[in-house]
């Protein structure tokens, strides 16, 4: 993997870049892990409603120890605050929001993303059990599915692939992927490079990717 000497963005920078895509008025669901970091991003005066699977609609920043309300958590179990205009609903109503297509974007982590927009994030190779949570509902029903993940595994294997090797979460739904190397959009047979992180060359990104890259028009 000598081609990828530039590490590119760190996790917060990946989240920051993707959060810049959020539009004013969007209803956004952030998955656990790196996606949660999108809520730290300064996106100016754009008004975003953060939706959590457990029916906490309109949550705000995580509260420091001592200030938290133990009855209030987001989907990742973090003790969050509520923004003005927040509402609490039950789980079936929360997923009614999801299933009826009212989530403008869901941002999730993943193990693999394929060139055709498939992605895998609920089961690792060889495991009997899996962790689906709300991922399949969100992936099937949100208006947009964005993925944030490290471009390569710890062993240096690519995570952006022609086809997913792991069991998929949903098919053909991913439209935008942020990795440490840049911003990529599945095109069907490869990925279009929307942007490269500072210091990352096209050749280096291609060498780290398991599908053909094309320059973004």
């Amino acid at each position: 993997m000598s081609a990828t000497t530039a590490k590119g963005w760190d996790r917060q920078q990946m989240a920051d870049r993707l959060a810049q895509e959020f539009q004013d008025g969007w209803i956004v669901n952030l998955g656990v892990g790196i996606p949660t970091l999108c809520s730290n991003t300064d996106i100016g005066d754009r008004d975003i409603i953060y939706h959590a699977e457990n029916g906490v609609i309109g949550y705000g920043p995580v509260l420091p120890a001592g200030q938290e309300d133990l009855h209030l958590v987001n989907a990742g179990g973090q003790n969050v605050s509520l923004n003005p205009g927040a509402a609490i609903i039950h789980h079936a109503d929360s997923f009614a929001i999801i299933r009826s297509g009212r989530i403008d974007v869901t941002v999730m982590g993943a193990y693999e993303v394929a060139a055709n927009g498939d992605f895998a994030n609920w089961k690792i190779g060889g495991a009997r059990g899996g962790g689906i949570g709300g991922a399949m509902d969100l992936a099937a029903c949100a208006k947009r599915v964005f993925i944030i993940l490290e471009h390569n595994t710890r062993k240096g294997e690519p995570r952006l692939l022609r086809d997913c090797a792991l069991p998929v979460t949903a098919r053909g739904v991913v439209t935008l992927v942020a990795t440490n190397l840049g911003l990529f959009a599945p095109t069907g047979d490869g990925f279009a490079v929307r942007e490269l992180a500072p210091g990352v060359t096209f050749a280096a990104a291609q060498a780290a990717t398991g599908a053909p890259l094309t320059e973004h028009p």
């Binding site: 699977e53 039950h90 789980h91 059990g129 709300g134 399949m136 509902d137």
Partner: peptide, 22 residues
């Protein structure tokens, strides 16, 4: 739970969260 699931002592049905609620 994993040990009991892997050994077959306990069965499991994995259901997407929204489907479970519905």
């Amino acid at each position: 739970f994993t040990k009991y699931y892997d050994s077959g002592e306990v069965a499991a049905e994995l259901v997407p969260q929204g489907t479970l609620a519905e």
